[in-house]
Nucleic acid binder design. Structure first.
Length: 623
RNA sequence: GGGGACGUAGCUCAGUUGGUUAGAGCGCUGCCCUGUCACGGCAGAGGUCGCGGGUUCGAGCCCCGUCGUCCCCGCCA
């Protein structure tokens, strides 16, 4: 028989009781985490969001309460009414925050029972994502998940407070909008009223926020849901949340200061000091130093070692003399065995003409001076792993090697990124040995975070990457594509090369990377209609096409559009970093599987013919 | 669209060269137990080996197909 709550009210949460509360009459409400039944003495661990408290039932002190406790099972919802008591010295549990006290219950009410759960929220070790996602409410009861969402809440709140203090208005934009067939695939919403027509869910509020600037709101932000119908990854969900902001009259640095401000506030909210300002690097420099546009600064970058070789060395080694030679150094990994090197070979991408030299010992036999210089210039300690990446002189490639004004050529980028990606792979594989990632885990898991400010300067390494190329060549179509989106402003002094040398045009586009993850990207936008039209043309879009897709926006640009710019940061990814999680699913309450299915509500589903008829839709499925 | 890993009790997993009645730990049920906190002790229940087909005297194990979960490539302006 279940009991009624009646007029009972909670006096304390389970996690808050301390020695100072001894003697208080309390009412605790929560879930039975565990029951330890000693016969005439029963211990119930009562759990709520705040923690766990031990409730004691002594048959001699109350047979009725004891009987209720005997009936209680894991995940029953109960009320424990009684008195807080200091535990005896020998039965204090130092592992629990509430371990110095216990509640001697005079009454237990069983408010609800529970089937035996498919897995226990009380257990630390949890597997099988399928079961976790199906019974998501049980999974979310686990303290770890509760913690992740506490972090998420605190971060979102800190961001709102900071941005509000800087004059930003939070303004919502529509979920049902128009499809703009660039970029990712849209999720579509059929219109009942307009047969055969569809709304699209926004991939981002991009054009709306620009129009809010045209509308004179000066500074806008939104914690905005975005939708992209593309295949999933551990760090990609079909719907995700961005901290989206836009402001009028910004310099790039203005945007940076705002973002640094709210990130520092967000980190502070979870007890971590994040130093500002963040370092900045241009895209070209990032490629040269890290071989990737989202550098992980927790490990050393690439080192240019071309100087160490003479021209005929390169010939002997079949290395392209015109391409860079860089060293990848991973500290403390030690010398690799033949087998380890063979195992690592598939992690190296040689498809675009990059060549890996991973046996420095062997190289040293023929080129002792070169290897010496390399060890010196990379600052390699004796237990550091060093490998070389260069251009393969024997590679047959149909890739343009034309350099445009001062920028990296495609083949140079190919060598750098082969090295950069290999660096990331090695870093991931040998994380235990180099220990650079453990620093982050330590800070994330540090219990001192609640008390005060933990130094995050070594654990979290943000960096701004600036001056991306305006366009990228689409290898399939041979068309120039915008690196970011077509509303990004080119550098004013590069404008005259839009047609003559598009590859050399730099965009006022910037990324924020942290620990090798892309956290966000933004740009200073185009605010003059003529420039916007020119960009559309450079992208191979006819004026008619531009008008039919973005006519409303081009028109808005005609009515006094102020210079403006902004950025969007992935809230889910940010929380993932701060929670020390390895998947977005750990920080999204109701995520979808890799096939974009919600296992709890079982979505998507077929709908009735009636519904389809109203929407003027017929499915093309073969039955 | 492609590649890889996994799928055996409610959960985590073992299962040898294809061979009799498929195991362990946790959980669950019952009984015992007054200081446990991953309580302990005794006894017990619990299996469509993801699903379908094939090979074989015989399949959890081999083959083909299929479904699901995860990771990656493509994709994600």
């Amino acid at each position: 028989m279940l009991d009624l709550l009646g007029t009972l009210e909670r006096t304390h949460t389970c996690g808050e009781l301390r020695a100072a509360d001894a003697g208080k009459e309390v009412v605790l409400l929560g879930w039975v985490n565990r029951r330890r039944d000693h016969g005439n003495l029963i211990f119930l661990d009562l759990r709520d969001r705040t923690g766990i408290a031990q409730v004691v039932l002594d048959k001699d002190l109350g047979a009725e309460a004891h009987l209720k406790a005997e009936q209680a099972r894991p995940e029953y919802v109960i009320a424990a009414i009684g008195k807080v008591r200091l535990r005896g010295k020998d039965v204090i549990n130092p592992k629990m925050p509430t371990g110095e006290v216990e509640i001697v219950a005079s009454e237990i009410r069983l408010l609800n029972d529970s089937k035996v759960p498919p897995f226990s929220p009380a257990e630390d070790a949890i597997g099988n994502e399928e079961v976790r996602l199906k019974y998501r409410y049980l999974d979310l009861r686990r303290p770890e998940m509760q913690h992740n969402f506490a972090v998420r809440h605190k971060v979102a709140l800190a961001v709102r407070q900071y941005l509000s203090s800087q004059g930003f208005y939070e303004i919502e934009t529509p979920f049902m909008t128009r499809s703009t067939p660039e970029g990712a695939r849209d999720y579509l919403v059929p219109s009942r009223v307009h047969a055969g027509e569809f709304y699209a869910l926004p991939q981002s509020p991009q054009l709306f926020k620009q129009i809010l600037m045209i509308s004179g709101f000066d500074r806008y932000f939104q914690i905005a849901r975005c939708f992209r119908d593309e295949d999933l990854r551990a760090d990609r969900q079909p719907e995700f949340t961005q901290i989206d902001l836009e402001m009028t009259f910004p310099q790039q640095q203005t945007v940076f200061r705002v973002v640094e401000g709210f990130l520092a506030a967000a980190f502070a909210a979870v007890g971590i000091k994040l130093p500002t300002p963040f370092p900045q690097i241009t895209y070209d420099e990032a490629m040269r130093q890290f071989g990737i546009d989202k550098p992980d600064l927790r490990l050393p970058g690439l080192t240019d070692v071309k100087f160490a070789f003479a021209a005929n060395d390169l010939e002997t080694l079949a290395i392209s003399p015109g391409l860079p030679i860089v060293a990848v150094r991973i500290p403390k990994v030690g010398e690799l065995s033949r087998k380890e090197r063979d195992d690592n070979r598939p992690l190296f991408d040689s498809r675009k003409g990059a060549k890996l030299i991973d046996d420095l010992k062997r190289l040293e036999k023929s080129f002792p001076d070169a290897v010496n210089k390399i060890r010196e210039v990379t600052g390699a300690q004796s237990d550091d792993l060093v490998v070389l990446v260069a251009g393969d002189a024997t590679a047959q490639l149909r890739m343009s090697d034309t350099k445009s004004a001062g920028r990296l050529s495609e083949r140079e980028i190919a060598v750098y990124s082969a090295a950069g990606n290999f660096r990331v792979e090695l870093a991931r594989k040998y994380a235990v040995r180099h220990g650079a990632f453990a620093v982050t885990e330590q800070v994330v898991g540090s219990p001192e975070r609640d008390a005060g400010q933990v130094d995050g300067s070594a654990a979290f390494r943000p960096i701004w990457v600036t001056d991306f190329p305006m366009f990228e060549l689409d290898e399939e179509t041979g068309r120039w594509m915008p690196s970011h989106h077509p509303f990004t402003s080119p550098h004013e002094e590069d404008m005259d090369r839009l047609v003559s040398d598009p590859a050399s045009v730099r965009a006022r586009y910037y990324d924020l990377a942290m620990n090798g993850l892309e956290l966000g990207s933004g740009s200073i936008r185009i605010h003059q209609k003529a420039v916007q039209q020119e960009i559309f043309r450079a992208l191979g879009m006819s004026d008619e096409e531009a008008k039919s897709r973005f006519g409303f926006f081009l028109e808005a640009l005609e009515y006094g559009t102020p210079p403006h710019g902004g950025i969007a940061l992935g809230l889910d990814r940010l929380v993932m970093i701060l929670a020390g999680a390895s998947s977005l699913r750990e920080v999204i309450a109701f995520p979808k599987t890799a096939k974009a299915i919600d296992l709890m509500v079982d979505a998507p589903t077929p709908v009735s013919d009636m519904q389809l008829r109203e929407l003027h839709i017929r499915t093309a499925l073969k039955s």
